[in-house]
Design a binder for these strands. Structure first.
Lengths: 106, 106
DNA sequence: TAAAAATGAAACCATTTGGTTTTATGTTCG
DNA sequence: CGAACATAAAACCAAATGGTTTCATTTTTA
C-alpha cells in the first residue's frame, strides 16, 4: 500500500474505494466523517484514501487537526478514453456486424 | 483465482488483462497464440483469460484441441454507466462551477 | 495546561494475486 | 498407433491487498 503503482484502473477496482468517491462527489469531507459511513476502521479508510490520492482521484488538505478530502475526477478521463476504443463494438448493430465481417475476411 | 468475485472493475485492473482485451479486439484467438504476445507463461495467460471470462469480457469455445477466445465488450457498459455519473464534474466549466456553488451552499 | 479529538505511522496478519513448475488429458497427424 | 500439440489442473510461492491493533503527534478546547 505504498508506491506509485496505483493507477486509476487499480484505484477503482475496489468497491469501498468506489463508494468513497461517490461520497465525495456530494461534498468534501474529513477522514473521520468519511469513515463513519463504512463498517471498517478509520485506519483502513485512510489507506483507501491514500490509494485514491496516489491515483489523483482525490486530494486532501489539512485544516486544523482535520484532513479534508475532495474529489478529483480528472483522472477518470483516462478511463473514458480507454473505454471509447471498445464502444465501437457495441454502440450499434452495424458496427457489430462490421466486426464480424472483418473477422471472417481473415 | 476462482469464484465469481471478479467483476468488470477488477478484471480490467490488471494491465496484462487490458492488453489481452486489446489483442482480442482485432480478432478471436486461441490461448497459445494469445500467450505468444506476452513475456509470461501460457498458464499465466490462461488464468487471466479465466478471470476475463468470469467477468464475461471474453468467451471461449473449444475447436478441436484449441480453445478460441473472443472479445465480449458488453460488460464494459457497466463501466460506462459508472463513469457517466462523474462526467458532470469535468465535462465543462459550468458544471464545475455548479459543483463548487452547491458545496458552498451547504 | 491537560484531556479530547483527529490523524499518522508502524507492526502485524490472513487472504488474494500473479506468477511458476509439474503432471494429466484430449486431439491431430505422420 | 505413437508422438507432438494444445489445453487443463494442481501444487506451490512471493508479494500485494485489505484489514486490524497499538502507539505517537498535532490541534483544539474546557
Amino acid at each position: 500500500m505504498n508506491a506509485a503503482k496505483h493507477d486509476v484502473f487499480q484505484a477503482i477496482a475496489d468497491p469501498t474505494r468506489r463508494d468513497v468517491l461517490k461520497l465525495l462527489a456530494h461534498k468534501e469531507l474529513p477522514i473521520s466523517e468519511i469513515s463513519s459511513h463504512f463498517p471498517i476502521s478509520r485506519t483502513a479508510v485512510a489507506k483507501h484514501l491514500h490509494i485514491l490520492s496516489e491515483a489523483k482521484l482525490v486530494s486532501g488538505r489539512k485544516v486544523g487537526r482535520e484532513k479534508i478530502y475532495q474529489l478529483r475526477p480528472e483522472p477518470l478521463k483516462e478511463l473514458k478514453d480507454w473505454l471509447a476504443f471498445y464502444e465501437q463494438f457495441w454502440s450499434n448493430r452495424l458496427s457489430i456486424l462490421k466486426h464480424v465481417v472483418e473477422n471472417e475476411e481473415k
